[in-house]
Simulated assay, not measured.
Amino acid sequence: MSGYLTNEDLANIDSKNKLFEHAKTHGIDTDKLQFELDYEQQLEALQVELIKLQRWVQLQQLRVVIIFEGRDAAGKGGTIKRFAEHLNPRSMRIVALPKPTDQEQGQWYFRRYIKQLPNVGEIVFFDRSWYNRAVVEPVMGFCTDDQYQQFMRQVSEFEHMLFEDGLLLIKLWFSIDKQEQSRRFQRRMKNPLKQWKLSPVDQKGQEYWHKYTYYKEHMFAQTHTSFSPWTIIKSNSKKLSSWRAYDMSFLSLSTKANQ
């Protein structure tokens, strides 16, 4: 009852039935094993559909932006990785901008994001976006109240211009509860391969939980529009959230393309 399979065990497994027999012998949770197998199978099917979606975007000469927003450790980056893993990199980009430079801080706030918008036939995934100014920046004191208020006045007008110009914008918010965020922070601190993900800003996520909630709710109230709605993805389970994000993105794109 070791709780894991050795390389020798795996070498002798040539069927699903044998895998489950070995799992039971070694004290491995077979329900969890079945979930993992189902997930991998469905993930492959999802990625095939994403490739078809990308080809459709290319053939129709569309411009698509998918924004991934949410609290720290909500699973945004992992979902983007699963989305993009098998896509053609020549017509897809992932944008994760660092903090603005001194020069950028003196420019119109949206300028640095406008430069990253897609060309025809291209999908761009934003791992955080201009909505930094709606939640993270005011919570952490990275912008003034005047800058925040100006952003909130301008953002829906900005997105309406993108809509009128034919750009397809999908806005996803990944939602986790406070306990799950804490668990993920703890795992990151213990995992040397993921410690780089844990920044001082992330570590304030628990302390400022209610402040984040206030600005998040205000953002939804002000920026959930008919031409650019938000879709909330429940992401306490990272794997299930990937399926939900794909389903909602595909549905949103299909609806927008037929408007």
Rank of each mutant, 00 (worst) to 15 (best):
V139S: 10
F110S: 03
V139C: 10
Q103Y: 12
L117C: 04
T255R: 13
A74T: 07
A45E: 14
G166P: 08
Q34M: 08
V64M: 05
K81M: 04
Y208N: 15
M248K: 14
G141Q: 01
F20R: 01
L62K: 15
R90P: 00
L97F: 06
S252L: 07
M189E: 15
T231W: 12
F68M: 05
L43R: 13
F142Y: 09
L168K: 14
L117R: 01
S252A: 15
S235R: 00
F250I: 07
K18D: 08
W196Q: 12
D14K: 12
D202V: 02
I232W: 03
S91R: 09
W108I: 06
F174W: 00
N88I: 03
A45N: 14
I176R: 04
N191D: 15
S228C: 13
Q150C: 07
P100V: 06
L37W: 06
W173F: 14
P98W: 05
R63W: 06
W230M: 01
E180G: 06
M219P: 07
Y131D: 04
F158A: 08
N88K: 05
T25L: 14
L240E: 15
K24T: 13
E69D: 02
D202Y: 05
S242I: 13
D29S: 11
Q203F: 01
Y246H: 13
R188G: 04
Q41D: 14
T101D: 05
K171S: 04
S228V: 06
T25C: 09
G27E: 10
L10G: 05
F151T: 04
T225N: 09
E44A: 15
T255D: 13
M152R: 08
L50M: 12
H210Q: 14
L87F: 04
Q181H: 07
N7Q: 12
I170E: 02
E69S: 00
L251I: 11
Q195N: 11
T223I: 00
F35T: 13
M140A: 12
L50T: 04
L19A: 00
L43A: 11
L169S: 10
V120A: 14
V65S: 13
K239N: 15
P192G: 02
P229H: 11
T255W: 11
M161C: 07
M219T: 11
D31R: 10
W173N: 01
R93T: 02
P118D: 09
P138W: 04
Y208Q: 15
A73P: 05
S2M: 12
H26P: 01
L167Y: 11
L59I: 13
S199Q: 02
Q181Y: 07
L169Q: 12
G205I: 10
E104C: 09
Y212K: 02
P100S: 07
S15V: 08
R183V: 09
I94W: 02
S182L: 15
R184M: 07
Q181V: 11
